[in-house]
Nucleic acid binder design. Structure first.
Length: 483
RNA sequence: GUCCCCAUCGUCUAGUGGCCUAGGACACCACCCUUUCACGGUGGAUACUGGGGUUCAAAUCCCCAUGGGGACGCCA
């Protein structure tokens, strides 16, 4: 049974890198009919917040990455038999294992102060040795140590790196990786404030939650050595590891805030579709066997295997994401697309009198979607239909200066006023345009462009024969009168 | 500094010794469609970091160099 997890630390919005790790784990679980667990790694009390945890959960939901065990997406109550799923709620569990290691001599209490440890490190560096902490000559016996701790004295628990030897992992992404044990000194398991550290919690949780495969970012590769030592000391079975390469910014540095939009929430706000972002990050470090790029969730699940991970880091290219978003957006059924676009239009405060008309939505959206790459692109397009926002744009200057323009506008207005109906169909418009042509004695672009300016105030955009049927005659007249 | 990871078009990537005069996608350029702008269609330019091996044969295996990234925390 495959059991995988995503274990974010709640210190901000969900990052695209984190989203990718979550997606890969999720797909892997679905591919092999296993379970996907969400675990919150909030042992850093300084930086973790409840608010950030909610944001991350909201982002995962938005992406459609749902978990079988973990905090309930709404209530945040533990869901599943291996809880609690927040590390800050598992302190006692960690403590128990730490004490066990102390009793077995695999770990020891360390009452040395920060400044003492600092001095030791400096001395090591001065003598050109790696600055690794080792056990003091005299270790405080467990009983005495516990006595001192219970009196409130601050003391940490350190793991004792016992023997010098090489550790090997068969990494699912990188193949065999060798770690010499002297890469690390005796490392802290439990802080002197009683809170255990990441490497320790991670091992205990993964073991207790029966995690079989750990797919995580490459930054954890060297942590794996420490974790392997803990697994060994606790006699826990080792899961399979797969270390995913980084997602980088255009400058090949690790993607961060200064690269602009990097959180899922940023992309949501900018009008990206979750399915497009999903599909895009999927392809940043993984490829499909047949080279196809646009893949439905079902296809993703069916094709997802660890053999197709790319060990090299990937640069995040928003241009391609934009293309992919446009592709998904245009493929959406109109009513669905409308549901996604509508919040952006509302946010922009546009006044669109026919907004309740389903046929009008269909008509406008199918005309506009070829010029949209993001949902936010709908706003300037629909603004053209808002009478209160109508104005002759600076780009129209040249057309307005044509001597033919005034003649065309005059005829246009005259014909509009004479038109019997309330709205013009495409055929009505074409016929009317013909009469304007005869009346003004103008043809070609000198006819066409002034009419466009009369309709939307600018010389370029969607075809006029599609635009005119979107508006009421009264709007068209009002606009023409403003020229 | 020490250790670890990585290296194919500008970018995402295919490639697991002969199918590679290196394939696809985005972006770019040209043309077509089009009385504008998009969409769409067709075509084009562009890459195996360098040097040594191994082999009849290397983008592919090995070594070295170079470059990039990561870890070396009582952060995760």
């Amino acid at each position: 049974m495959v059991r995988v997890r995503f274990a974010p630390s709640p210190t901000g919005y969900l990052h695209v890198g984190g989203a990718r790790t979550a997606l890969y784990n999720f797909l892997y679980a679905r591919r092999y009919g296993g379970q996907f667990i969400l675990r919150i790694e909030d042992t850093d009390l300084e930086r973790s917040t409840e608010e950030a945890m909610r944001m991350q959960i909201a982002d995962l939901k938005w992406l459609g990455i749902l978990w079988d065990e973990g905090p309930h997406p709404e209530s945040l109550q533990d869901l599943g038999p291996h809880g609690p799923y927040r590390q800050s709620h598992r302190k006692d569990i960690y403590r128990q294992y730490a004490e066990r290691l102390v009793d077995e001599g695999r770990a020891y209490y360390d009452f040395r102060t920060d400044s003492e440890l600092e001095a030791i490190k400096e001395k090591l560096i001065a003598s050109e040795k790696p600055p690794q902490i080792e056990a003091p000559a005299q270790i405080v016996p467990p009983a005495e140590a516990r006595e001192r701790i219970s009196r409130g004295e601050p003391g940490a628990i350190r793991f004792r790196v016992a023997e010098k030897r090489d550790y090997f992992v068969q990494d699912l992404v990188r193949g065999e990786v060798r770690f010499p044990s002297d890469m690390v000194g005796d490392f802290v398991l439990v802080r002197s404030n009683g809170m255990p550290v990441y490497n320790f919690c991670c091992v205990i949780d993964d073991a207790l939650m029966k995690i079989t495969h750990v797919f995580r970012a490459e930054e954890h590769l060297s942590n794996t050595l420490r974790q392997m030592m803990i697994y060994e000391a606790l006699k826990f079975p080792l899961p399979q590891f797969g270390h995913l390469s980084f997602i980088l910014g255009p400058d090949k540095q690790k993607l961060s805030k200064r690269h602009g939009a990097t959180s899922c929430n940023d992309f949501r706000l900018r009008g990206y579709l979750p399915e497009a972002l999903n599909n895009f990050i999927l392809l940043s470090g993984w490829s499909s066997p047949d080279g196809r790029e646009i893949l439905s969730r079902d296809e993703q699940i069916q094709l997802f295997t660890h053999e197709r991970f790319n060990p090299a880091p990937a640069v995040f290219d928003e241009t391609k994401l934009l293309w992919m978003n446009a592709t998904y957006l245009r493929a959406l059924p109109t009513e669905e697309l409308w549901a996604r676009v509508e919040p952006f239009l509302r946010e922009a405060g546009l006044q669109l009198p026919q907004v309740e008309n389903v046929a009008w939505r269909e008509q406008t959206l199918s005309a506009f979607k070829t010029s949209m790459q993001t949902l936010a692109d709908a706003v300037p397009l629909y603004r053209l239909l808002d009478d209160s926002a109508f104005s002759v744009k600076p780009e129209a200057q040249e057309v307005c200066a044509w001597p033919e323009a005034k003649k065309v506008w005059q005829a246009w207005l005259q014909e509009l006023r004479a038109f019997p109906g309330e709205k013009l169909s495409e055929a009505d418009f074409l016929a009317l345009q013909d009469r304007v042509k005869d009346l003004a004695g103008v043809k070609g672009k000198h006819l066409f462009q002034p009419i466009r300016v009369a309709v939307i105030g600018q010389p370029q955009g969607t075809e006029v024969k599609l635009l005119v049927p979107m508006m009421k005659k009264s709007s068209l007249i009002a606009r023409a009168e403003k020229l």
